[in-house]
């Protein structure tokens, strides 16, 4: 089994969502819609990345405002050495206890400084095998729900075993059609994003 990739540590959290500081400057941060994991005691809390914020501060603003040609060493200093992490927020959509995955809000949030890991393909398949989390996403007013569902499904489809992506997306589409039968405009918005 591969060693899980440590992405960062929790800055603040609630049962609904958690935000962590990301400081892997050499790699791009986990993209919108990616599944990540925080371990809380005997549970693993799964979240979908829905907000990535790169902070500024007076130092950065001063340099940008100066408008001079930027020295590459300064750019790397700003990106790699300064204490201004990229902040990433994930919506909690599931948790696992032992071998069992529950697609609902976790009983407790990750604690501050709890490590956050990227999820490997097998873990994505296991955590998002069912679609009960759709309702959690669709009912959340803090995240761009349609965009997030479409992005997470596209990513989850790529994690399926060979030949499994189309059946996975078909099953997801059916579930969405059932949930959004009374809201065809929203359903169409998701399906368009899913297929384009």
């Amino acid at each position: 089994m591969n060693t899980p990739i440590l992405l960062g540590r929790v800055l603040r959290s609630s049962t609904a969502a958690y935000t962590f500081g990301y400081n892997h400057v050499d790699d791009a941060p986990p993209p919108f819609g990616a599944l990540i994991r925080a371990d809380v005691a005997t549970e693993s809390v799964y979240g979908l990345v829905y907000d990535v914020v790169v902070h500024d501060d007076p130092f950065v603003r001063q340099i940008v405002a100066a408008g001079e040609e930027m020295d590459e060493t300064r750019i790397q200093d700003m990106r790699q050495r300064r204490q201004t992490p990229v902040e990433i927020t994930a919506l909690a959509v599931a948790y696992a206890r032992g071998d069992q995955v529950y697609q609902r809000i976790p009983p407790r949030p990750p604690a501050a400084l709890q490590p956050i890991y990227a999820c490997a393909d097998a873990e994505v398949r296991r955590a998002l095998a069912r679609f009960d989390y759709f309702r959690t996403v669709l009912n959340n007013s803090q995240c761009p729900a349609e965009e997030l569902l479409a992005a997470s499904l596209r990513r989850a489809a790529r994690c399926q075993l060979p030949g499994g992506d189309a059946p996975y997306l078909l099953a997801a589409g059916r579930e969405l059609a059932r949930l959004l039968a009374a809201d065809p405009a929203r359903l169409e918005a998701i399906l368009r994003r899913l297929t384009s």
Binding site: V25, D71, E72, T73, Q76, D77, R79, Q80, R81
Partner: peptide, 14 residues
């Protein structure tokens, strides 16, 4: 402290 190597294009040591 910072060690800044001009022209290196590498992040300085802090």
């Amino acid at each position: 402290a910072i060690i800044f190597r001009q022209g290196s294009a590498a992040a300085p040591q802090v």
